[in-house]
């Protein structure tokens, strides 16, 4: 088995609140949006030719109601459009085994759990905080092995729709040269992250303009 390539990757939330059709007069996710747009701009600037998107597939119930494009892909396309990205987009939702990065940037649309507090979509599950903490630690340190090993069954129980995409990230790329968390929070009981991984040695995404903290 060959080692996966080093790659630039960005993780953003899959929340439909980021979609233009769900705008409000007062943006409930202004900080998340600013961070996500900044991170995707960073990725698009580094990979103007091609971006590979990993996200959750459409829920079976939603598919039965006529949803043809999963929210993760619509969020990705929307953020790429905001970034002015005009290159090729390869979509994997849900992601399969073979990523075929081929020099592109990786855009991972994935949330953490949705059971962080009593008002969360799935109500409070005491296991959720620890699960999210483990994911966040892995994202912060570029720990691909930890992502690869995320527990899918527990993830499902905690309404963590991002597990398959995060596992695919862990499988598809080598440990990054540097990682930076632009946003981490669970404003509605759902864990969101905006993270940038740089695949190039000697670079620190935190020093790169284009993002700001919420």
């Amino acid at each position: 088995m060959t080692s996966p390539p080093a790659a630039d990757a960005v993780v953003v939330p899959a929340t439909p609140l980021l979609l233009p059709g769900n705008r409000s007069l007062r943006d409930p996710v202004a900080g998340v949006r600013a961070a996500a747009e900044g991170a995707v701009r960073w990725l698009a600037r580094r990979h103007p030719e091609r971006v590979v998107v990993l996200g959750a597939g459409a829920d079976a119930v939603d598919r039965g109601r006529g949803v043809t494009r999963p929210a993760s892909l619509r969020v990705a396309r929307s953020l790429l459009a905001v970034a002015g990205f005009a290159g090729r987009v390869d979509e994997h939702a849900p992601p399969g085994e073979d990523l075929a990065l081929g020099g592109g940037g990786l855009l991972v649309v994935a949330d953490g759990t949705a059971r962080r507090d009593p008002e969360a979509p799935g109500r409070l599950d005491p296991r959720a905080a620890g699960f999210d903490e483990a994911v966040e630690t892995a994202l912060r340190h570029g720990d691909v092995a930890a992502l690869r090993g995320l527990d899918e069954a527990l993830g499902r129980a905690l309404l963590c729709s991002g597990v398959p995409a995060l596992r695919a990230l862990g499988s598809g790329v080598a440990r990054p040269a540097a990682a930076h968390v632009d946003y981490a929070g669970h404003p509605f009981g759902v864990q969101y992250w905006v993270v940038r991984w740089s695949g190039r040695d000697g670079e620190d995404p935190a020093q790169d303009a284009g993002t700001r903290r919420p």
Binding site: T15, R23, S24, L25, P28, F188
Partner: peptide
Amino acid sequence: WRLPARAVRGLA
């Protein structure tokens, strides 16, 4: 013709 003030329900 007008956006909601702040709509989160079912979208988080």
